[in-house]
Amino acid sequence: MKKKLKAVLFDMDGVLFDSMPYHSEAWHTVMKSHGHTLSREEAYMHEGRTGASTINIVFQRELGREATQEEIESIYQEKSVLFNSYPEAKRMPGAWELLQKVKKDGLVPMVVTGSGQLSLLERLEQNYPGMFRKEL
């Protein structure tokens, strides 16, 4: 039995917004300030993970343990503040045109993201007007 496609799922970082250079720089800078090593390139490799998961990878590798909840919250908060201090990430080239085609073809574009960056979440309507509905 053939199923009919109804929706297309889009991630935000690196798909809808060109935000990965900022994420990688923020991760690198904050980890370095805490005496840990996370290169900009490695930060790209961990894209899609939660902040806690990224932090725990570094802690496991360098300290042989998981980060405490307090360490995770503190480091992730610092990373978020630094990320939000950078210029606004631009739309990814071609994303608007692809979203228009998806809608024209009768499909529902949906955002699925692990991003907790409110600066990006709040910009969806501004950058992609009428494309996404907020659903609970």
Rank of each mutant, 00 (worst) to 15 (best):
K4G: 11
K4P: 07
K4I: 14
L5S: 06
K6D: 12
K6N: 12
K6F: 06
K6E: 14
A7T: 13
V8L: 04
D11G: 02
D11M: 02
M12Q: 01
D13W: 00
D13A: 01
D13I: 00
L16M: 10
D18M: 13
D18P: 11
S19V: 04
P21H: 12
P21G: 11
P21C: 13
S24C: 12
E25P: 05
A26I: 05
A26S: 14
A26Q: 08
W27L: 01
T29Q: 15
T29W: 07
M31I: 09
M31V: 06
S33C: 08
H34V: 01
H36N: 11
L38T: 04
L38G: 06
R40V: 15
E41H: 10
E42Y: 09
E42A: 07
E42D: 13
A43V: 00
Y44W: 12
M45W: 08
G48R: 06
G48N: 05
G48A: 04
S53F: 05
T54I: 13
I55C: 03
N56S: 06
I57E: 06
I57F: 07
V58S: 00
V58G: 00
Q60T: 03
R61E: 09
R61G: 10
R61C: 07
L63R: 13
E66H: 12
E66C: 14
E66D: 15
T68I: 07
T68N: 10
Q69N: 12
Q69D: 15
Q69I: 11
I72H: 01
I72V: 02
E73D: 15
S74L: 12
S74N: 14
Y76V: 02
Y76G: 00
Q77F: 06
S80M: 10
S80A: 13
V81Q: 09
V81F: 05
V81G: 06
V81A: 10
L82I: 00
L82S: 00
N84G: 11
N84K: 14
S85Q: 11
Y86N: 05
P87C: 08
A89F: 06
A89T: 05
K90P: 12
M92H: 09
G94I: 12
A95S: 03
W96E: 13
W96C: 10
W96L: 14
E97L: 04
L99F: 03
L99V: 02
Q100I: 09
Q100V: 11
K101Q: 11
K101L: 14
K101R: 14
K101M: 13
V102Y: 07
D105G: 05
G106A: 04
L107E: 11
L107K: 13
V108T: 14
P109S: 08
V111L: 03
V112I: 12
T113C: 11
S115W: 09
Q117H: 02
L120Q: 02
L120T: 00
